[in-house]
Computed example of a mutant assay.
Amino acid sequence: MGATVARSLIRDLRRADGYWGRFADRYDWVRRAEELGDEWADPERWVEYLASNAPDEREDEAVRRLGEAYAEERLAAYVDAETVERRRAAGHRRLAELLDGDLLLEAIDDETILEYAASLETKAD
């Protein structure tokens, strides 16, 4: 429920900034940089796309300003593989820190635990 309310508030703020229709909706999904095609990697393509969908009553300069901001926002959502991996590992570590230790040990197979314990003993020697 909270996420729905937050998205509604963001949409209202974006409409107040001049965005319309689907451009007022804001999603902060992260995308892999490899998935970004050449056509959409060009910020001008996003500006043109927004302009081609602009209501007739919008001033060209306002549409251009919004298009540039929209392009920057969209392109910032694409991250390289190294960033994806770093964020994944950090997220897993944060999640593991919140979980019960006994529960984690139950979820990990015994062989993996024994191998890890043996590696610790080797390091200690």
Rank of each mutant, 00 (worst) to 15 (best):
R22I: 07
A62F: 00
G21F: 02
G21E: 03
A76S: 14
L13G: 12
L98I: 04
L95V: 10
A90C: 09
L50G: 01
D56K: 00
R11F: 07
L98P: 01
L9W: 06
G21N: 05
E82K: 00
Y78T: 10
A89D: 15
Y27F: 13
R64K: 12
D80Q: 06
E34W: 10
L36I: 07
R14P: 03
R45T: 14
A6L: 14
R45W: 05
R58E: 05
E35N: 14
R26N: 11
D17H: 05
A69H: 08
S8Y: 14
E68T: 03
L66T: 01
Y27M: 11
E61H: 10
W20C: 00
L95I: 10
V5Y: 04
R74Y: 05
I10N: 04
R93F: 09
A76V: 07
D12M: 12
G21I: 02
D17A: 08
P43G: 03
E68L: 02
R86C: 04
E48H: 04
Y27G: 13
S8C: 10
E73G: 02
R74N: 12
D100W: 07
E73A: 07
S52F: 02
R86H: 08
E35C: 09
D60F: 02
R65C: 03
L99H: 04
G67P: 02
R31G: 09
L50D: 00
R74F: 03
L36V: 06
A24M: 03
E97F: 06
D80N: 11
R26I: 11
G91I: 05
G21D: 06
E73I: 01
L9G: 14
G91M: 15
R14K: 15
E57R: 04
E85K: 06
R58L: 01
E73N: 04
R94K: 13
R26P: 08
Y70E: 11
A24H: 02
Y19P: 02
E73S: 07
W40G: 09
P43E: 01
A69N: 12
R64M: 12
A6R: 14
E61T: 11
D12R: 13
E39L: 13
L13Q: 13
L104G: 06
R22G: 11
N53V: 03
I10G: 04
W29D: 15
L9T: 10
R93A: 13
E59L: 08
